[in-house]
Computed example of a mutant assay.
Amino acid sequence: MPATGTDVRQHTPHMAPPDQAQLPAGLTTRPLTRSDAHAVFVLMVAQEQEDIGQVAIEEADIVSDWARPSHDLGARSVGVWDGETLVAYAELMGADRADTAVLPSHRGRGIGTWLAGWLQDLGRSLGSSIVGMPVPQGSPGDRLLEELGFRVRWTSWVLTLPEGTTIAERDLPEGYVVRTAAPDERRAAHDVLEDAFLEWSERDREAFEDFEASLVGRPGFEPWNLRVALDADGAVVGVSLVLVSEDGTTGYVDRLAVRRDQRNRGIAQALLVDSFARAREHGATTSELSTDSRTGALGLYERVGMVAGTIWVNRAVDLS
């Protein structure tokens, strides 16, 4: 789940309330607040259960995203309410990263179309050239966005290491180690991640303050979650962020990167082995990660025994 924050605190306008006449009668709207995290989680759980038959989102994911100091939630989100029930929402983070959900019982009423229009209007007001969002491939949301002219930017796969399977260990170069990142190594870890991700990701560089706030602001975060590979001089040359699901059964590598000049030396594989081992030490029985078509890494993960499952697409529309 690579993050795509950017510092917009000085540039985010406060949008006027959306035109509620475009929504079905009886529904109301308002910007979201951090206290709405659980309501958004419940909404997204219902949508994922309907669309993919399982739940991928965790409330901690939402809380972590909303902890970023650059994210003006009040100006960049909208919730649609049916009485006391949140039935839909949308938000825009950074220049172009959107997330939306509509309660399955309220589909077919034009709410998703309204949200798509709201996001495009917000993006234009912020000077964005494009707005996109992830949706399960073939889902109602995918089909709706296609009808609305959203094109596929990239495809993502969630990969699982089957229970009982292990990734073959790789020896590190002489003098290299993998261990828990010390607090004063977090900035260097952030730099390795951003340098690697920005080789293929078209977005602004994430501010370190956003990275750290989303890291330590995530419910359940423990220092061991951030793993680093150090060279013989003690410099951070590789990073893995491994999380354990709220039910304790799944270890998830949220981010993985190796410095460009240190690649093809077994460091990424060593980080994977370490990350999944640490997750198992904390009770996880299954290991997962996700990758997308921009990285070219799908084959690498499949070769170490991981199996692709759910497929998502990022659909986007140009705003020019």
Rank of each mutant, 00 (worst) to 15 (best):
L271I: 01
H282S: 06
V177W: 01
F208Y: 15
R259H: 14
E199L: 14
H282Q: 13
L241P: 03
G296D: 10
P219L: 06
T249E: 14
A188V: 07
L272A: 05
E209F: 07
L172H: 03
V304C: 02
T250I: 07
T250A: 14
L271V: 03
L300H: 11
D254S: 15
R278V: 15
L198V: 04
D233Y: 10
T285N: 10
R205N: 04
P183M: 05
A270D: 05
T286V: 15
V244Y: 00
V304G: 01
T285Y: 02
P223N: 13
F208I: 07
S290F: 13
P223G: 00
R303K: 12
G238L: 06
A189C: 09
F276A: 07
D292G: 05
W224A: 07
A235V: 06
E194C: 11
P219G: 07
V253P: 10
R259Q: 10
D247I: 04
A284P: 03
E302Y: 11
R218E: 03
A279P: 03
D210N: 13
V177Q: 15
D247L: 06
D231T: 07
R179N: 10
S287D: 12
L198C: 09
T180C: 01
V258H: 01
E281W: 11
R303S: 15
V258Y: 04
G266K: 10
S240A: 15
A257K: 08
L198T: 06
D247W: 08
F276H: 11
G266Q: 05
G248E: 07
